[in-house]
Design a protein around this nucleic acid. Structure first.
Lengths: 126, 126
DNA sequence: ACAACCTTGACATATGTATGGTAGGGTTCG
DNA sequence: CGAACCCTACCATACATATGTCAAGGTTGT
């Protein structure tokens, strides 16, 4: 046996066996299995588990959040949508006159104008 | 009044007033306030709220996850650490001999070698 | 074969996320 | 001024995350 089984891996990685299974289930770590189905932890996996621990502790991040980061990396469209959302400048220049405000906003992202129609109405009514 | 107050914004954005406050608190949306402290929703904010809704629904993402994406964008070091973690190739080439396996791993990321010492011992003992 | 270890699945709990209320007290604006 | 609306601060709930533990049954290695 060249690789460690789950309890040995737990001792050397700092995670509990329970969490090692949980982490695998979360998709953050792929593990080879023995013919009988035992999870096998080699140096590569152990290293990842240790750095994972360090990473989560150092930045106070959760496994779920890392899972989302993973999604972001893998899903081009998700990443694009998120990027686009953040890129939309939320700051309103103070020197824009109240009357020009709406137009100024609408000119920024034509693709989003449609949904803004009712807002326009509501604003007019106010 | 050129901007909407929270209940009006709720009606046009699809979020409940409660959630509008929650979203502001989550840091995903900054809002100007009236002199008396009322949250003010202009077209920019309303647009963002609508696209936010769309984004979360379309990809089944939560506000907390978006919050993490925000952190990733803003925190260079976090992003680097996460990137590095994911970049570490978890795949082990099958043609690496058992004896060379550890060395092969260790050569990959020198900064991480220290923590691997006990693993080495455990592996030797096995 | 047998002791020691692993697997999956289920139950349990503490904390966090996402929402909805309510109460006491200020703000707006006609 | 007064009705209508907003604010902050709680309480409450349903589901998710993170973890522990236990039971019934299969795997390993000597």
């Amino acid at each position: 046996m060249e690789a460690l089984t789950i309890n040995e891996a737990a001792r050397t990685s700092g995670w509990s066996p329970r969490m090692l299974r949980y982490i695998e289930g979360s998709g953050l770590l792929e593990l080879p299995r023995s013919p009988g189905g035992y999870r096998l932890y080699g140096p590569a996996q152990l290293q990842r588990l240790r750095t994972l621990r360090e990473l989560l502790a150092r930045f106070d991040v959760g496994l779920a959040e890392l899972g989302f980061a993973r999604r972001l990396r893998g899903d081009e469209r998700l990443r694009g949508a998120v990027e686009e959302w953040f890129e939309t400048e939320p700051a309103r220049p103070e020197h824009v006159a109240a009357g020009d405000w709406l137009r100024w906003e609408q000119e920024k992202h034509q693709a989003l104008i449609a949904a803004a129609a009712d807002t326009h109405d509501l604003l007019e009514a106010a």
